[in-house]
Amino acid sequence: MDHELTLRVDGAEHRLSVDPRTSLLDALRQRLGNTSPKKGCDHGQCGSCTVLVDGVRVLACLTLAVTRDGSEVVTADGLSAGPPGSGGDHPLHRAFIDEDAFQCGYCTPGQVCSAAGMLDEFARGRPSVVTGDLGADPELDDAEIAERMSGNLCRCGAYPGIRAAVARVGREREGTR
């Protein structure tokens, strides 16, 4: 039996009716025409479907759409400096271009959303497994960025550029705090 739900995606509200089997990823891509999140493995192993749901980075492929009724979803397409969907580049978009952080681009929307969620987690003082002192606020060094972004694979191997882009936006944020 189909279920009715409301999703706010990149700033716009949508009502849709879905089979409970429909993943959030398929709902976004095939029902709402938002092809920013990508289907890489469809098993939660590659991160290319990463979106922000209610501000938190998650995997859209392992999320059943029916479980997210009423949620706010932001994809790399809607990520911007202002409110979701307001247009204009997010600093991560610009940094990925400037730092040559992609080749084919397939994983990039997932990388960008993951980086946005990760930088928020970092700003809240959340530790990672490579944080030496769990009692102290972590430093955003290269090892921390690599660990925190490990859920996003890039088969082109653009990792050095991705880490540089994330580091740059992280530094810019620290400068404004």
Binding site: V58, L59, L62, S114, G117, V129
Partner: peptide, 27 residues
């Protein structure tokens, strides 16, 4: 991320952070 877990049960914080990815740990 809970300060009490990090302080009093670091083995649990470290085990959780060793598992999966940032996205999966949020879910």
């Amino acid at each position: 991320a809970d300060p009490r877990v990090r302080r009093h049960y670091p083995v649990l914080a470290r085990a959780l952070l060793s598992g999966a990815s940032g996205q999966l740990r949020n879910m």
